[in-house]
């Protein structure tokens, strides 16, 4: 029962955050992806960096249970799947989480995205044996690995660096990049006056 209450509280907070940061607005997503407005990218980098610093810092002082980590396996299909997801993400302007939030907040195109998503997931369920047989799901570089060795995590590191300190350093780097990244990379700021969104 506790876990259900936590699911409701953390899930709802996540939904609020996605809505407020603009991630469930497909126009905001594609302005990020076509490099004309990187403010959402800056927010995401800041979030990853802050989360990393708090988590690894918390682990080092014993506040965060290392056992709560869950590292996914590395295999070639991660890259192939990433390419597919990326293409669909740009086409639709939605990823799985933001598409659901958008559908819930009344965006009609997001309902079509979710319907397509359910069908796509079902298609994967049916074609899974083919991918397994292809070898693309076989672990590479040790499978469930992290960049350094995180004390007590049970995961191997691809380097022997101390994984918790590395995590904090990378987290700070993400935060620094978030601040350093310009607000746009491509095109020129529109010279014509346009009403505020």
């Amino acid at each position: 029962m506790t876990s259900i209450i936590l699911a409701i509280v953390i899930g709802a907070a996540f939904g609020v955050a996605l809505d407020r940061v603009g991630a469930s607005n497909p126009s905001t997503i594609n302005k990020m992806l076509n490099l004309t407005d990187l403010r959402l990218a800056k927010a995401i980098m800041l979030a990853i960096g802050l989360g990393s610093v708090l988590m690894f810092g918390g682990q080092m002082i014993g506040l965060v249970d290392v056992g709560h980590m869950s590292v996914k396996a590395a295999y070639a299909g991660v890259f192939v799947g990433g390419l597919l997801l990326g293409a669909g993400w740009a086409m639709a302007g939605y990823c799985p989480g933001t598409g659901l939030v958008a559908a819930a907040s009344g965006r009609k195109d997001a309902l079509f995205f979710v319907a397509g998503g359910l069908l796509g997931a079902a298609a994967y369920m049916m074609t899974y044996p083919m991918w397994r047989a292809s070898g693309l799901l076989d672990p590479i570089w040790g499978g469930k690995v992290t960049l350094g060795v995180i004390p007590g995590s049970g995961y191997d590191g691809v380097t022997s660096l101390p994984g918790d300190i590395l995590g904090i350093v990378l987290g700070l780097a993400f935060i620094a990049i978030a601040f350093a990244l310009p607000e746009r990379l491509l095109g020129q700021p529109s010279t014509q006056a346009h009403p505020a969104e």
């Binding site: 799947g81 990433g82 390419l83 597919l84 997801l85 639709a92 799985p96 989480g97 069908l119 796509g120």
Partner: peptide, 20 residues
């Protein structure tokens, strides 16, 4: 949007996860 949803979820399941 429908086609994008199909590709996104097919890709996410192949990859074993999504943007989150």
């Amino acid at each position: 949007a429908f086609l994008g949803g199909f590709i996104v979820l097919y890709g996410a399941r192949l990859a074993g996860g999504c943007t989150s």
